[in-house]
Structure formats: C-alpha cells, structure tokens
Amino acid sequence: MNLAVNTPLALAGLLLALLPLFNNGIRTSPAPWTALIPADTLSVVIVGCLRLCAVAAIAGLVLGIAGLHRTEQSRERIGHGAHIVLLLDRSSSMDNTFAGRTANGSDESKATAARRLLTDFVKQRQTDLIGVAEYSTSPLFVMPLTENKNAVQAAIAATATPALGFTHVSKGLGMAISFFEQQPVTGSRIVLLVSDGAAAIDHDSEQKLRLWFKQQQVRLYWIFLRTANSPGIFDQPEDSRDDNAGAMPERYLHKFFLGLGSPYQAYEAESPDALQQAIADINQLENLPMHYVERVPKQDLSAVCYSVAAFLLLVLLGAKFCEVKR
C-alpha cells in the first residue's frame, strides 16, 4: 500500500476535517439545565459516529481533491511458464495462402493463420512474459517482454497491416535475443520464429548469433510455414550443385540452428492445422517453473475517496433530516 497524492498542497485542507470535532452542526435548542438529562450511552455513540462520519467525509473530499492514488508496485510471483519472444516474418510472401496464391475469401493467408493461432496461444499462456519482434528488410521492435497480454494481442493484431519486402532473418534473431538482456534467468527462454522462408546468414552474423544463443540460453522453435511446392527444411537436394545456402536457404538455416548447441526444434507447417499442431506442442513443452515480478500499475483512488465521501454525506444528510428543532 504505497499511497501518494498528486497535489500535496491540497492536503492542508485536512485541517478542515477537524472542524466537526468543535461543532457537530446540529441546531441547538435552549435547555434550562442539561445536567438534569440522564446520561445516555446510545446518544453518545451515535453523536460520536456522526462526528467521525463528518471528519471522514471532509477528509475524503480533501484526499479526492489532492488526487490520492496507489503508486505502481511490483509483486513477486512464481508460476509455470516461459519468456517467449515471438519473432514474426513480415515478408510479403506471408500475405499469400499456403497454396502460394493471394489470399481470398475462402483461404486465409499464412499471416492471418499465424495471427489467429498465435492469439490463441497467447491467450493460453497466462503466466508467460511475451515479447514480439518482427523482421523483414530490417528488424522491427514491436513489444518488449511483458505480462500484459492485451498489449501482446494488440501487437500480434498489428501484423495485419500489409507486409514489407525481404527476409532478413539474422538481424531479426539478433533483436529477439536482445530482448532477454537484463532479464533474470528464470523458467525457459524461447524464441518462436514464425516464417515462411529463409535467407542466407553471412559469416559474421553466424558467429554473433552462436555467441548470443549460448550467452542468453535461448531455446529456439522455428515454425516454417511451407508454401506448396517450395523447398522444405528437411528436403535433400536432388542435385549436389544445388546444395548451397543461396539455392536452399531453408535447409542451411536449419543446419545452422542445429549446430547452435542450444535446444532447437523445427516444425514444418503446410496448413493452418499443422501450424496449430506445432503451437500446441510448444505449449505443452514449455512449462517450467519460473520466478517473475508482476507489475501492478498506479491506481487512482480519488474516485473511491469521492464515493466514500458522498456516501458519508448522505448519511449526514439523513441525520440532518432526523434533527428536531424546538
């Protein structure tokens, strides 16, 4: 309970709350000798309560004016889950269907399917910290690791905008891994790469990625949305002349990931159902206990103050109507 106010100067008005202690606000009738009136405990209690009501009502109004609020707080929690960075491919081919055509009413595009299934995925993973990064020509920073699921949903929904040109996977991975910097190592750390294609990674980037994957202890899941009749991850080249990174980037990227030394799992999804299966697998696998800090945002309490004061004022108004004047 860390309470704070917006305008501390207004708290000077709390002095006014002492007024009811000096004057109970009830019109007095003259009496010749009050000592003759027998002591009455109930009256004393009721008058005391009314005084307290008045004090509290004034205090409530003043606190409301001062803008009482509870400051942002963090709460330590232990749950099952993971730190997940969704790394989404934003290349223009994602806007095509799994059949390789432009999306129309009957077939949804790969991006739409991914969006829909990832949204469900996020919904199921309530205790995870999830971040979102995208890449196409260059990496796009979308949403840092957060427990705010609404923000993540919104970030995923934002991929509905038309996609960009190329596929620059190494920079995207670099950015995804950078999300884990300055995060405590609890639970598992996952980069969920959703893409429909791959690109060759140059030597320098390879070195860096190897290092980073080791440093940050990141597990990698690659969901490859394979378009019909395009080369897959696990395809062997028919001609040995095609066996190079330029001709079969998917195969070579897969090889590179296998050689990273960190846990890696690849899924090849050729339809929305297969994609769903892949996501369900990940959902089952990654449920390690983790320790994380939940942040509770600042809470404005002035409305509560005003409503309490209004209620007390109603009580006092009722008492005023009960008043007898002689």
Binding site: I26, S29, P30, A31, P32, T34, A35, I46, A319, C322
Partner: peptide
C-alpha cells in the same frame, strides 16, 4: 429524532 440541547447557563 436527533436533538441538541444547549445549556442556558
């Protein structure tokens, strides 16, 4: 009812 008496003396 509520009544408040003030002693005259």
């Amino acid at each position: 009812g509520l009544i408040s008496f003030q002693d005259m003396e």
